[in-house]
Design a protein around this nucleic acid. Structure first.
Lengths: 235, 235
DNA sequence: AAGTGGTCTAGACCACCCG
DNA sequence: GGGTGGTCTAGACCACTTT
């Protein structure tokens, strides 16, 4: 392992162990890091550069290098994987209503998506997603993480990632997603507030942590008459 | 402008002027680049690093630095913005059938998406997209680029980006996309080979060049019973 | 004025590829 | 063995922010 990789790993551990997640914290200066790791400035900068690239840190010239708040990490995942951020950008207030939240045994199909054995215990969280108190989607999250009863009783998408990071040291890093259309059952159409709806925009997502485990599998059906999915693509 | 930015720009120009797009070409060695630009190795490497990051170049230790073939650039755009790459990955053969290809005056709505004035002349390319010779989507591309008659007569999505790069020095760099569902007209359902289809997966996309001009606006309606859109998301 | 990150230099040693 | 990219060093000057 090269020196800048070691430095990067050390900084990352320091960030993770630090339990202060609310406000952004300042890193030691680059010269201090040079002394701490007995490395030249270019080497230390290479390590920090990568963490900046990955969004973990950010720099302000003349001031210092800072750890991005947990909040931002969460937002960037939500920005990439959900519609909530989209709603906010359109000036709507997102909320959710829990339909179901309990431990279940994984069915064969769900187990496949979570890359575990059928029958293993997981947590199912089924919610209605609303924008300005109007139903927009019905979402089922299958969570492959050992959660305490307290955590289950106080579960929102927001606090889930936070809980995983802070208590379980699990770090969601990337996701596979597909988008298509599906038929709606009459029951689902009613949940979405319009029993005439026949089709919905369907999304599913596997979220992976740094160790390539699937931490959750989420399926959602969105009202096709109200919502579109937006992305930006770079070359 | 910093030195490594100048070097990067110079290398980029050299790549663009070079008309050999078929096979990958080798760049001068890093030491030669140092002499050419009167810079130190670290500075030259910073310039090359960025081009590698952006996918323009790639390095092989012990051999040299290479320009990625145009083909790859095209693929990476298609991978991000279309379903064709997806079809290939599933072992299907993508093709397309041109329904319409002509100069038209931009309607008010299309002009808005292209960020031009209504009535300006653009090119409309309407195609059926097929996988293993089965219709999968109907796609309309509104192209905001001055194309020669020859170029219009020989237009495929593949050659469009190539033509823009090589003859017009226009470089598509990023795109905004949205995905939703839409109703299909009976005529469209027939084009897709199943007149019973009522809903389709709808996508639209604005493609921007390096100067933030919209070079094309594309709408497509995909068979919801056959296709899903796949993405991978990173934090 | 002092301290921060942003950039650059001119060397050096290493691992890898090829003839 | 000679050339390539991969890494690292110990300085230096600059632009910017804060005191």
């Amino acid at each position: 392992m090269t020196k800048h990789q070691q430095v990067k790993k050390n900084i990352q551990q320091w960030i993770d162990e630090r339990q202060l997640g609310e406000t952004d914290k300042c890193l030691p200066t680059e010269n201090e890091l040079c002394e701490m790791f007995h490395g030249s400035r270019m080497t230390i900068r290479k390590a920090v550069d990568e963490l900046v690239q990955e969004g973990t840190l950010y720099r302000i010239r003349g001031k210092g290098t800072f750890v991005r708040s947990r909040n931002h990490i969460l937002q960037s995942l939500q920005k990439l994987t959900s519609f909530s951020e989209d709603m906010k950008e359109r000036g709507m207030v997102p909320s959710s209503k829990i339909l179901l939240c309990e431990r279940i045994a994984a069915s064969k199909e769900i187990a496949e998506h979570l890359q575990i054995e059928a029958g293993e215990e997981i947590v199912l969280l089924r919610r209605i997603r609303l924008a300005d108190n109007e139903p927009m989607a019905v979402e089922s999250a299958y969570i492959n993480v050992k959660l305490s009863d307290d955590a289950i009783n106080d579960l929102t998408s927001g606090s889930l990632y936070g809980y995983m990071r802070e208590h379980l040291h699990i770090f969601p890093k990337w996701a596979k997603q597909s988008i298509g259309i599906c038929k709606l059952s009459e029951w689902e159409a009613q949940l979405l507030g319009n029993s005439d709806l026949q089709y919905a925009l369907f999304t599913n997502r596997q979220t992976f942590d740094t160790n390539k485990n699937v931490v959750e599998y989420v399926e959602a059906k969105y009202r096709g008459d109200r919502y579109k999915y937006h992305t930006e693509l770079y070359l």
